[in-house]
Deep mutational scan, measured.
Amino acid sequence: TLFEALYDYEARTEDDLSFHKGEKFQILNSSEGDWWEVRSLTTGETGYIPSPYLA
């Protein structure tokens, strides 16, 4: 399933992933509550992002 970022986000820890509004992601793991592990389709990087920032 693909999701798109609604807002920009700046990583706060080394496990987080910074991203920009409009960036698209593949969800790798959504079992961690509000923090999902994703792969950016723009950069190929993986990390955790806050799920409320996605649509």
Rank of each mutant, 00 (worst) to 15 (best):
R12D: 07
A55L: 10
A11D: 02
T1S: 10
T42K: 11
G47F: 09
L6R: 07
L54K: 07
F3R: 08
L6M: 10
E4K: 04
H20Y: 11
A5S: 04
E37L: 15
Y48W: 15
V38L: 01
P52N: 15
S31C: 11
P52S: 15
S18K: 05
G44L: 12
Y53Q: 06
E4S: 04
S30K: 11
I49M: 15
S18E: 03
R39H: 02
S31D: 10
T1P: 11
L41D: 10
D15M: 13
E37S: 04
G44D: 02
W35Q: 09
A5Q: 01
L54M: 08
R39C: 04
D16K: 13
G33E: 11
D16V: 14
F3S: 01
E37Q: 13
D16N: 10
R12H: 09
V38F: 15
T42W: 15
I27W: 03
L6G: 05
E23Q: 06
Y7F: 10
E23G: 15
F3H: 04
D8E: 07
W35H: 04
T43Y: 01
S40R: 14
G22P: 02
T43L: 00
E23R: 01
R39Q: 06
A11M: 03
W35K: 08
S40D: 03
A11K: 08
E37N: 06
G47P: 00
T13F: 15
L2N: 04
Y53T: 06
Y48D: 01
T43N: 04
S40A: 07
E37A: 06
I27Q: 01
E14A: 12
I49R: 03
L41A: 11
Y53F: 11
E14M: 09
E45G: 06
L17M: 13
T13Y: 15
Y9N: 02
E4N: 04
G33R: 11
Y9E: 00
Y53N: 07
Y48M: 11
T1M: 13
L6N: 06
G44T: 01
L28M: 05
F3D: 14
V38M: 02
A55N: 10
P52D: 14
D8F: 04
E14R: 10
Y53G: 05
D15E: 13
F3V: 06
Y9T: 01
S30F: 11
I49T: 01
A11W: 15
L6P: 09
F19K: 01
T43G: 02
T46E: 06
S31F: 08
Q26F: 14
L28C: 06
W35F: 07
T43H: 02
L6H: 05
A5T: 04
E10F: 12
L28G: 00
K21Q: 06
G22Y: 08
W36M: 12
L6Y: 07
W35Y: 10
T46C: 07
L2T: 09
P50A: 06
T46Q: 11
S40K: 10
R12L: 10
S51E: 02
K21M: 07
Y48T: 05
L6F: 13
E14H: 11
G22W: 04
L2Y: 13
Y9R: 03
E10Q: 13
S31Q: 09
L28P: 01
G44R: 00
V38I: 02
Q26R: 06
E45W: 10
D8G: 04
Y7C: 13
T43S: 08
E23K: 02
L2S: 05
Y9M: 03
